[in-house]
Each structure stands twice: as C-alpha cells, then as structure tokens.
Design a protein around this nucleic acid. Structure first.
Lengths: 131, 131
DNA sequence: TAACAACATTCCTCTTGTAGTATATACGGC
DNA sequence: GCCGTATATACTACAAGAGGAATGTTGTTA
C-alpha cells in the first residue's frame, strides 16, 4: 500500500506521543491490543487507530489469534527503520512516561506468568540492539 | 519559549522533508539563508519559515552578520537531540536527495573558495559523530 | 536619503491529523 | 442462533501545519 519506506514516513510515524509509547512497548515484544490499551490507559478507538496507522505505514504487523489481534514490529525492518527504532529505544529511557509504560509491561507479564490466556502468551523479548 | 525539548518535539521537527534537508546541511556546518535556499531550490518564504520553526523549537540558532543571517545547529544539543541528529545523518546517506544536497554544498563551497563575501565565510565542518 | 539586498512576518487557503461517538465486524462460548 | 468480548471503521468536528502572495524590517551601498 505504501511503496515508500523512507525517512520521512518513519518520522511521521514517530511524531505522535501515543505511537511512540506503542512502539516503545512493541520493541519489547509482541502485544495484543488490550494490553497496550491497558498500559497506556487510553480509549480503545485511539489505540486501534494508531496501530492501524503504524500498520499502514509498514512499521508493525498483525496476526489474529482467537479473539485477539497480536501486534509486533515488522520482522525485517529496513536499515533506516532499525536505526531509528534503536535510537528511540535509547532515548525513551530518558523519559518518565516511557519508563513507566515499560514498568507496567513488566508487572503485567509477571501477573500473567503461569495462567495466561491466549492473548497473553508470554512474549519473547526482542534482542536489545545498541545502535 | 519552549520548555520541553523532548523526543516528541524533535520528531515533530523531523517530520517535514524541507526541514530534514535543512538539518542535513546544517549538520555540515553553519550556513546563511541564501545558500540553503540555493541548494534546496525552494522559495525564500518556505525556507525562512522552516528555519523559524526549527529555531522556535530549539534545534538551531542564528546570528546576524551584516546583511545575512547565519544559521547553525544549537551548540550544546541534548543527548536525545544529538542521538537523533546523528541517526539522521547516518540515514540521510541512503537517500538520493540528501546526497545531492550535500554534493551541491561541496560545490558551492569550492566555488566560494578564495573570494567569499561575508555570508559565505567558509564554514568549518562539525565533527562527524558516529552515533 | 534613496534604492537595494537579505530575511522575516502576516494573512489567507488548503490539507492532514487527531479525537470522540456511535456503529460494525469477527470470533468463541453457550 | 444468541450473546459477550475484542477490535475496527464511519462520520464529524476541530486544531495544527504547509504553501504562497504580499508586505514589513534591517542593514548596506550609492
């Protein structure tokens, strides 16, 4: 749908707070919508639309699983995208809200440990690439 | 004017093609408006407004020199800004238009070598920080 | 001081993006 | 087949950003 996966497209995806928070989470592994929604504490429609935006522009991919939709970062990001996601990951550590989101994610995983429903299958963390 | 120099502000600055091209040039040293305008081959008002935007948001600084206005990247960028500018610099190499701009800048400097008017004082290149 | 050159700013229009409400779809359990 | 849960889409209203034409400003030169 979008041929161009250039720098500008990437920055356009990155210039919304909600999308940054989502990407910060997905950087740590796949997640279903409801968990993203819970961590960000934002309306469902808002999360859903931003996920749609990211998908349309080629930053994330989805798969269906039973009643849920599992989002993740694209499997083989371009070099440019990978560089920017790594940079985002580095920078997010500086910001309170991103750190809080990440902590919430850890807690959520801990709570689910053991008896997780399908949507909550413990996601494997992606490797931390120091850019 | 802007207290926040956070990630989002930076990405907002980066999500316009013209601003990206300007930053790509300034990364290689200070420049007056007329040279940026010449290299980008865009209307004066357009260049001027985007420079104003970048200044308002704390990415660039200006000084007056005779009839000219010399723009440069801010002297002490935050760690986050520095990371993103370095990332941009790396990524810009992948894109035709950024490379062409950089080549034009080199030619322009070569032409000016020797008898440059004040606005064209040979800018010293900033150090290339491999992020 | 008049004319000019380099920039900035104002005003206007157009487009894009965002948020919210309400509604639709898809799937699993009963 | 009906209902609840999870998620997406349509529609609308609103705000911000971008581009261009015209005009303003500042400093230089004649």
């Amino acid at each position: 749908m979008y041929g161009r996966m250039d720098l500008l497209t990437i920055y356009e995806c990155l210039c919304d707070k909600t999308r940054l928070r989502i990407l910060n989470l997905l950087r740590q592994g796949p997640l279903c919508v409801c968990h993203i929604q819970e961590i960000l504490d934002e309306p469902q429609v808002k999360i859903s639309k931003h996920l749609g935006y990211l998908k349309t522009h080629g930053l994330v991919a989805v798969k269906s699983e039973a009643n849920w939709r599992i989002y993740r970062l694209v499997a083989k990001p371009s070099q440019v995208l990978e560089a920017n996601l790594a940079c985002l990951q580095d920078c997010a550590g500086e910001d309170k809200i991103f750190r809080r989101d990440s902590e919430k994610l850890i807690l959520l995983r801990r709570d689910l440990d053991g008896d997780a429903p399908a949507c909550c299958a413990k996601p494997q963390p992606v490797k931390i690439t120091k850019y």
